[in-house]
Nucleic acid binder design. Structure first.
Lengths: 108, 108
DNA sequence: ACTTACCGTAAGCCATGACTTACGCAAAAG
DNA sequence: CTTTTGCGTAAGTCATGGCTTACGGTAAGT
């Protein structure tokens, strides 16, 4: 059920932007917030949410905190999506087959 | 940018439940809503959101509307997540390497 | 020791959205 | 033609959560 928390986090655009800034590598909070349309405390709150969802990790470096993406945090969501995609696809194909049968025999 | 709408939809638990009920195959609205903790109009609204995000398709069948999962709708989200996962992983490995170097040379 | 830099948290405001009830419309049933 | 079934939509209520300002706390610099 841990994919749910990941989805809750990734639903917010600002949070996605924060995460995408971390894609290039670890960053301290101030550098993440620089040039963004929200305040630094807002970024801190988003980072807290991301950390709680297991999507990022943090580490102290002097007076500043460096955040990194946790690749393992994305794994459950990937797994859920994959399973979902496979099952939906097979069900979809079954439906196509059923539809083809109905096309041959339109009025039972 | 179409993955954003998918994430917005999947953030809602009720919407996920609706989508998971469709995993077993196409269903009319009433059958989807049956046994759920929200009213049928609520399910209709969620289905509208899911359709707008391209995650489901609908088709008329008499007085009832049958909804199905659209596998293609999940593809963009999968692609975005994959790319994200790959880049984050490589950056993570780079960070591990950098950390190892720092461990060898702790005080520059 | 004092100041400065960097960050997390608290309190409060406000917009978004999820839900309900009530209503209207189309297709099947009678 | 009338009734019933199945569904979408409108209006209104209420909770959730994202943002800001203000504050406190720790580590480095001087």
């Amino acid at each position: 059920m841990t994919y749910a928390k990941a989805l809750d986090c990734l639903a917010d655009p600002t949070r996605r932007k924060v995460l995408e800034r971390l894609r290039a590598g670890p960053r301290p909070v101030g550098e993440i917030a620089r040039g963004m349309s929200v305040s630094r405390p807002a970024v801190s709150q988003h980072l807290k949410a991301l950390k709680n969802a297991g999507l990022v990790t943090d580490r102290a470096a002097g007076t500043q905190r460096v955040y990194s993406i946790d690749p393992q945090g994305l794994a459950p969501l990937r797994a859920w999506l994959d399973q979902f995609w496979d099952e939906a696809l097979s069900a979809f194909q079954q439906e196509v087959a059923r539809d083809a049968r109905h096309r041959k025999d339109p009025k039972p």
